[in-house]
Write a protein that binds this DNA or RNA. Structure first.
Lengths: 202, 202
DNA sequence: GAGAGTACGTGTACGGCGTACACTTGTCAA
DNA sequence: TTGACAAGTGTACGCCGTACACGTACTCTC
């Protein structure tokens, strides 16, 4: 996980990991069945970092807090969401997390049906991230970025307009001006509020 | 794309593609810079299959329809969402699609700010899919699947309970009983309704 | 019609990857 | 002392993307 945190997930090959451990690649296979099992294990550690839910608070607060905790865990390991997306089968650890999450909805008064839909709606947000179309990594020079936007003005007028507005709103001079944490919570609350309305409509 | 549709995206290597085209692998590099450019091109075709928005309808209908069209395009090419997730930079085609989507919100009366948040909230749903924790491929025997669930009853009681309910609700005898299309539209409408409330609150 | 440019395909090769299989080595209980 | 067992080793295979140098055939100009 240290290697993935520092060098990026694409740098994590069985060979490089073995080298980092001063060991021959095949030695790893005494400990994991294959690379997938290694990745599953890494994810389990990340999921294990998610705080347990607080009790004696209403469902919305409890779920909100837990999901934000999941998000913090994922932000600590930038590779985790990408790996998570690539997994096709959940590990027991993840199943346990989902089970507990379902329980939180249920004990919050959700019908089984609405809980089901809720889990679907939450989607990857349950794990502390939400699939964006593209990760706007801001590892580019902000000035240059604005130039890029300016060059797009004719071709993509709406994107340009949006970029302008967002930048001006930002307290800093320029830059992407896009607060990921805010956007995440905005979406989370939108969904949770919507679910609450549906629940109370019953 | 035919090869990816039929054999799965993991079977699409430059070598296999070349073989399918009765050509030597390096010949492909006369047409694409590298494999990423090939994948980008494939996605562009998929995005091109999305119907243009209908005009003279309210924003919510227009956006809803367009996203469902995007979803149909993606369902035609099961590999597309996975590849989309893996992309890090949008192509001009995708930028165009996003630009048009932003425009739809704007002309629907959204402030620039709310449009910005809206785009984030929609996330991957904009492209016709939404990131699920795990794709419950139902390529397993339904009976066996229920057995699996039953075995999980003690360890994951909430998942078991949910699986039971969902199965019983289903009109068919058993099976996953999970209508992906319904769940997608459920989530889409939840989000769109929430956005509408925020828009009108201004 | 000759030559040059260009579009396209070829062949070989390199360095990476995951991992199957057969092997040694170190440790410790009986 | 022995023998089981956990851990690490070495070699090898078949895949992958793709750099680089080399054909080959068509087209366009003089």
């Amino acid at each position: 996980m240290g290697l993935a945190d520092q060098e990026g997930i694409e740098a994590l090959s069985m060979r490089k990991l073995a080298h980092a451990l001063d060991v021959v690649p095949m030695a790893l296979y005494r400990h994991v069945k294959d690379k997938d099992e290694l990745l599953d294990g890494m994810l389990d550690v990340v999921v294990g970092e998610i705080d347990p839910p607080r009790s004696n608070v209403e469902w919305k607060t409890a779920i909100r807090e837990r999901i934000l905790s999941a998000r913090r865990a994922l932000l600590r390991h930038p590779w985790a969401s990408r790996v998570m997306e690539s997994r096709t089968e959940p590990t027991p650890t993840v199943l346990g997390y989902m089970d507990s999450m379902i329980g939180m909805f249920r004990s919050g008064g959700f019908t089984m049906d609405l809980t089901h839909h809720a889990m679907h709606v939450m989607g990857s947000r349950l794990m502390g991230f939400s699939q964006e179309l593209f990760n706007d990594r801001s590892d580019v020079d902000p000035d240059l970025e604005m130039e890029t936007y300016a060059a797009m003005a004719d071709t993509y007028p709406s994107i340009y307009e949006l970029a302008l507005t967002v930048s001006h709103d930002d307290s800093s001079v320029v830059g992407t001006g896009c607060d990921d944490q805010f956007e995440f919570e905005f979406g989370l609350d939108l969904v949770l509020d919507g679910l609450e309305r549906l629940k109370d409509a019953d």
